[in-house]
Simulated scan of single mutants.
Amino acid sequence: MNTLLIEELALPATPDADDAADFLAVVELNNAVCRSDAGTDDLSQTPAELLAGLRDTADEIQRVFVVRESGVVVGCVIVGHATAEPTSTQFDLMVLPENWGRGLENALLARAEEETRTLGRRVMQTWTLHPGQAPSPTIAPATGWGAVADTALSGLLARAGFTLEQVERNSAFDLQGPMDGVHAALEASLSAAGSDYRLVEWTIPTPAELKDDYAWALSRMSTDVPAGALEIDEEIWDAARVERREARLIEGGQTMSVAAAQHVPTGRLAAFNELVIGADRGEVTHQFCTLVLREHRGHRLGMLVKCANLLRWRDVAPRSPRVSTFNAEENRPMLDINEQIGFVPVSYAGAWQKKLA
């Protein structure tokens, strides 16, 4: 390219606003890159979903930087950082294969690092997407669990000083198939959990009496989930943060169902599972968070909340074809549950990290 100008994108008020053309181009680019890298359409986002997250800056600030060629967006990097947690930035670098090799990817990566340094943060993190059948050669993460294809983006990150810290498996469950095994697994897990735990379920917004405890359980996602050597700040959640998160989802046209196990002696939530779908309930369902708090493990609560929510989901979104979810390859307890229920591998993601000097 003769000239390379990186500009911050001004977000439109709505996806159909008069000034939304460049934003819509970013959405299209994001979805095309996901499809190209992972080999599946399951990871696409709608304009309403992406815009709701970008415009809400209470808990995370995300800046969108684009490169245009002849007025057309041909590259983008979105750089985000949590407002309460101080350590890292996370970024998504988007350039289609036909535009690699002309300097776009290098310039956008440099812009992400510049933004990180300006913020005074010392860690950069990003995730690469990879097909289910990884061609050779492959790269193994620092954890030793799993491997991903050695792609152009992986090579760029490695040369820039990033380390592949973790591999995540993207799995899918067929929602239109028989549910006999799910029913049986739920009954077995309810029996194993015993009278100390009871199932509670809701569709957001979360009932007022559960918000504080749900906030506590969500905060434990930052401390109780396998993360390899990724530097993850302990997150601080309260009822207001839960409300803001759910407002973003609802603004983006999304519906979320939560199935949780409540510890009867204390009244505290011990495990939970989230399923989310967009405005079109005939599209793919996404599993967001699933967690069994450390102190409640060993009672089959992971199986309990996953199976309960899958069965509940049949009423929420009966036309959705499948559930898509990500789990760390070293998280064998959760992958064992997935495999027993019937989830199958579809694609993979690599978690990369760079510590700035």
Rank of each mutant, 00 (worst) to 15 (best):
L104V: 00
G53Q: 14
F91N: 07
L291C: 11
G155K: 15
S219A: 15
S324G: 02
E235I: 08
E60T: 13
H263V: 07
E330F: 02
A357R: 00
N30H: 15
I232M: 15
S88T: 08
R241L: 09
V95K: 05
D42A: 00
F173D: 07
F91G: 02
D92Q: 04
S171V: 03
E7R: 13
V33T: 10
L199W: 11
E168Q: 10
G75Y: 08
Y348H: 05
S195I: 00
E85H: 13
E114Y: 05
M256E: 14
C76F: 06
F326P: 02
R111P: 01
C76W: 04
L230H: 08
R68L: 04
L175D: 09
F65D: 00
E105N: 00
R314P: 05
A279V: 09
L356R: 04
Q353N: 04
E339C: 02
E115T: 14
G39Y: 02
L249M: 14
A357K: 01
V77R: 06
H263W: 06
G228V: 08
T128M: 04
D238S: 09
P131A: 06
Q262R: 15
L218R: 12
A32F: 00
E246M: 13
E115C: 02
D16Q: 10
V242G: 09
D56S: 10
D56Y: 00
E49C: 06
R300S: 14
L9A: 13
L43K: 02
N327G: 10
F173N: 08
G252L: 09
T87G: 04
L29T: 11
F23W: 13
P318K: 11
G278K: 10
V79R: 01
V200M: 05
I341A: 07
L54Y: 06
A112I: 11
E187T: 07
L129P: 00
W202C: 06
Y197V: 08
G101Y: 07
T14I: 00
L9I: 13
H299A: 11
V284F: 02
V200S: 07
V182P: 02
M334G: 06
V148R: 00
D19H: 13
A328N: 11
P205M: 12
T143E: 06
I236S: 09
G80H: 02
R268N: 10
E235T: 15
A308N: 14
S347L: 03
A149T: 12
L51W: 07
G342N: 02
V66G: 06
L96Q: 11
A260F: 05
V225H: 12
M179C: 03
F343Y: 15
V284D: 12
